[in-house]
C-alpha cells in the first residue's frame, strides 16, 4: 500500500470514527454544561464542573438503579452461561432420539423477534407473581438459542475422543463437563458472558414492562424517568446520567474487545 493510499484510508477512518462517536462525545460535553448552554448550541462547555453528576444522583436514585442493573445483568449472564453451556453439552455429547430436530427447533426460535413473545412472557411472569422482582427481570432471559448455538459450535471442536477417553477412565459426564469441556471453551464462555452482560445492561422494554417500583428498576428506566422529570430543561443532568450508564459498557468493550472478536469468530466460523 502506498503512503498516499494509507493517509487517505486513515483520514477516512478518522472521519467515520468521529461521525460514529460524535453523539457520545457531544453527550459527554453536555453533561458538563450549565442550564442554557445546550440551547445556545455550544459544543464545548464554558467550565467543567461536576454539578450535573451530583444532581443526577440526587434527582433520581441513580445509585440504586446502577446496582439493580448490575445485579440483573450479572444474574442473567451467569444464568445464561450455565443453561446454555449445559444445553450445548447435551446437544454435542449425548445421544438421544430427535436430537437434530430438537436443535433445529431450538435454533429456529432465533428467528422469532423477542418482542413477539413479549406478551405471553409478560402474562407468564405476571401469573407467577414475579412482577417487580428480580426473578421476573432475569429468568426469562436464561435460556437463549444464540448462546446455546455459539457454545455448541465451540464444543463441537472438542474431539469426541476426549469424551470417550474419560468414559473409559470412568469420569462421569458432569465431571467431564466441568473439568474438560468448560476449561477448553474458556474463550467462548467469556465472549458469551460479555455479550450477555451488555445485552442485559442495555435492556429497556422488558424492565419497563415488569417493574414499576424503583426498588428493582434498572438504570435504563432510570434515565428515561430522569428525562421525563426534567422535561428537557436540564439536559446536562440527563447526559450526566447517560455517561454514568454507558461507562460500564465502554469499559467492558475496551477490556474485552479482543476476546469478544476472537470468541465470536471462533465459535461461528470454525
Amino acid at each position: 500500500m502506498t503512503i498516499g493510499k494509507k493517509i487517505f484510508l486513515y483520514l477516512l477512518l478518522i472521519l467515520s470514527g468521529f461521525i460514529m462517536f460524535f453523539p457520545i462525545v457531544y453527550a459527554f460535553m453536555i453533561s458538563f454544561m450549565q442550564g442554557g448552554e445546550v440551547l445556545q448550541g455550544k459544543l464545548i462547555p464554558e467550565n467543567f464542573t461536576l454539578t450535573n453528576y451530583i444532581n443526577a444522583f440526587e434527582k433520581v436514585p441513580l445509585l440504586r438503579y446502577l446496582i439493580n442493573s448490575l445485579v440483573v445483568s450479572t444474574v442473567i449472564m451467569l444464568g445464561q452461561l450455565l443453561l446454555c453451556s449445559l444445553a450445548a453439552f447435551a446437544f454435542v455429547f449425548t445421544k438421544f432420539k430427535g436430537k437434530n430436530l430438537l436443535f433445529m427447533l431450538f435454533i429456529s426460535t432465533m428467528m422469532i423477534p423477542w418482542e413477539a413473545t413479549m406478551v405471553p412472557n409478560f402474562q407468564t411472569v405476571q401469573s407467577l407473581g414475579w412482577l417487580n422482582s428480580f426473578p421476573g427481570l432475569t429468568i426469562p432471559f436464561f435460556a437463549m438459542a444464540f448462546g446455546t448455538f455459539l457454545l455448541r459450535q465451540q464444543f463441537k471442536t472438542i474431539p469426541i475422543e476426549l469424551y470417550e477417553a474419560s468414559q473409559v477412565s470412568g469420569i462421569s459426564r458432569f465431571k467431564f463437563f466441568l473439568t474438560v469441556v468448560l476449561p477448553i471453551s474458556k474463550t467462548s464462555l467469556i465472549t458469551l458472558g460479555i455479550y450477555c452482560f451488555l445485552t442485559a445492561w442495555n435492556m429497556y422494554l422488558w424492565p419497563l414492562l415488569v417493574t414499576n417500583d424503583e426498588k428493582v428498576r434498572t438504570v435504563q428506566i432510570g434515565l428515561k424517568q430522569m428525562q421525563t422529570q426534567e422535561i428537557a430543561s436540564e439536559w446536562g443532568v440527563v447526559m450526566a446520567g447517560v455517561m454514568l450508564v454507558i461507562l460500564p459498557t465502554l469499559l467492558l468493550i475496551f477490556v474485552g474487545q479482543k476476546r469478544l472478536q476472537e470468541g465470536l469468530t471462533r465459535g461461528a466460523i470454525k
Partner: peptide
C-alpha cells in the same frame, strides 16, 4: 466402559489440551 477394567489409546491421543502432562496421566 469404566467397569471393563481396560485402558485405551486413541489415534489422536485424546490428550486434554488444558492440563499438564502430569494431570493428563493422573486423570481418571
Amino acid at each position: 466402559p469404566s467397569q471393563r477394567e481396560l485402558s485405551m489409546v486413541f489415534q489422536n491421543y485424546a490428550l486434554f489440551p488444558h492440563m499438564t502432562v502430569e494431570q493428563n496421566i493422573a486423570f481418571g
